[in-house]
Every structure is written in C-alpha cells, then in structure tokens.
C-alpha cells in the first residue's frame, strides 16, 4: 500500500513536471498521434493493394497496432526510465536510488515519464475504435489487454537493460532488442512460422505485446487470457529477479549526483 501511494506520488510529480512546459507537452502528445497516424498509412496502402495476408486484413492491423501502441505508451509514460536503465547502471547512476528507503527498481524506472507516451495511448485507443470492433465489453478487454501487454513490455525492457550489470555499456545491444520487440509486435504474427514463432513467444516476446492481446480484444477467450497473464507474470518475476541478481554486481564511481 505504501509502495503504491509512493508510485502515485511519483507519477503525479512526473505529470506536473511535464505539464510545466505546456506547449512542449501538447506538441509531444499531438506530434506522436500524428506520427503514428502517418506510419499506419503504410498498412492502409499495403492492404489496399494486397487485401489480405494469411488471414490478416486491415482491421486486424488497426487492432494490433492500437494494442501495441497503447501498451508501449502506458509503459513508457509510467516507467520511462525502463528505456534508460542500462545507462543508469553503466554510468553508476543507481547510487541515488540505492541511498533511499524505497524499492530500487520501481523507484528507478518510475522516476521518468516519457510524455509522448500519452500520445501513443490516445492513438492506440483511436486505432482500436477505427478497427470496427468497438463494443463496451471489447473496450474492457482492450484495457485489460493493454495493461498486460504493457507489463510484458516493461518487464522485457528491465530484463534486456539489466544485461548492463554483466556487459557494462550495452546500450547498442539493448536498443536493438527494444526495436526488435516493437517492430515484431506490429507485424502480422501469421507471417512467422516454426522457430521464428517460438522466438516471438519466448526470447523476444513481441507476440505477447501485439498479436495475443489483440486476439483477446477481438473475442473473449479464457485460454488466450491465461496465456497472456501467465506470460506477463513469468516475465515480471524473472525480470525483477535478474535485476536484483545483477544489482549485487553493481559498482559505482561514487560520483556526486543531484536529483532535480
């Protein structure tokens, strides 16, 4: 309870701090919505020309893109430092969080909000509405699906970025993993077979961020929900365990830092 109220305070502070520069705040949100809209035009053009690819049509793309964008947005808005964790580790900037009586990982990743994430969330919702699959019960499934997909995304980020405990400066490698996760999440999963599909459910769990939650939003299926919830839980537990295991190896240069 104490941790939850701490998190709420942190998110509130992040939001107020972002809104301090009102023009930049609005530009980033609207800019991201426009950015995603233009990017999605690619799929509109593609399906205008080819109609369907292995059972996937434009409506499926609206849905999977909407879920993945909203999950990404929610993840980076609430836990923005999950994208920068390897830099914090490699540059010895975890000292600040270690010196305070709060959970180190939670405090570190929730200390920054990526404002444009709000734009991603809004775009995700609009994309879901545009898919033609909107319904009140579908909206509830969309919210649950996005929540679980965001948990998958943030957990994977923590896992990938924690490699910095072992490899030092791993930012190039981690950005490769981040890009892989996002790119694979917004492509039709039916394109991939055999080993590639196995990778998308395990090593780079992009299917759990895009195709699986999108399938759950389309129609309630207990088996899909269980798969998604199990995947998110396992990744969450595993990422926290790996982070704290790596934290034992953490070394800092005792640099004096101030947190503004």
């Amino acid at each position: 309870m104490k941790t939850l109220s701490f998190l709420l305070q942190l998110w509130k502070t992040n939001l107020l701090s972002a809104m301090e520069y009102r023009a930049a705040f609005i530009t980033q949100i609207l800019g991201m919505i426009l950015n995603n809209t233009i990017y999605f035009l690619i799929w509109v053009i593609f399906f205008e020309r080819f109609k369907e690819i292995r059972g996937w049509g434009l409506s499926d793309m609206f849905l999977v893109f909407g879920v993945a964008a909203a999950a990404f947005g929610l993840g980076v808005f609430l836990f923005g430092n999950a994208l920068m964790l390897s830099d914090l580790i490699a540059q010895g900037k975890l000292d600040y969080y270690l010196s305070l009586p709060r959970p180190v990982l939670l405090h570190a990743i929730a200390s920054r909000s990526v404002t444009s994430g709000l734009g991603d969330m809004l775009y995700g919702l609009l994309s879901y509405c545009a898919s033609g699959l909107f319904s009140p019960s579908g909206l509830l499934r969309f919210l649950l699906g996005v929540l679980l997909a965001a948990a998958v995304f943030v957990s994977f980020m923590v896992l990938a970025q924690s490699l910095a405990f072992w490899f030092g400066n791993a930012s190039a490698f981690t950005s490769l993993l981040v890009n892989a996760m996002i790119t694979f999440a917004i492509y039709p999963v039916t394109l991939f077979e055999g080993g590639a599909k196995f990778i998308l459910f395990t090593i780079i769990p992009a299917a759990l961020m895009g195709a699986v939650p999108a399938s759950f939003v389309r129609a309630f299926d207990g088996h899909t929900l269980a798969l998604l919830a199990l995947g998110a839980s396992v990744l969450l537990v595993f990422s926290v365990a790996v982070f704290y295991r790596g934290l034992r190896r953490y070394e800092s240069g005792s640099a004096i830092q101030s947190q503004v």
């Binding site: 520069y21 023009a23 930049a24 530009t27 980033q28 609207l30 800019g31 991201m32 426009l34 950015n35 233009i38 444009s116």
Partner: peptide, 11 residues
Amino acid sequence: VTEETTPFEWI
C-alpha cells in the same frame, strides 16, 4: 523559434 523540435523530426 520553438521549445520542442522532436515531434517535427518524427513526422
């Protein structure tokens, strides 16, 4: 002339 240029870059 503007505070934030990143969105222009994205677009």
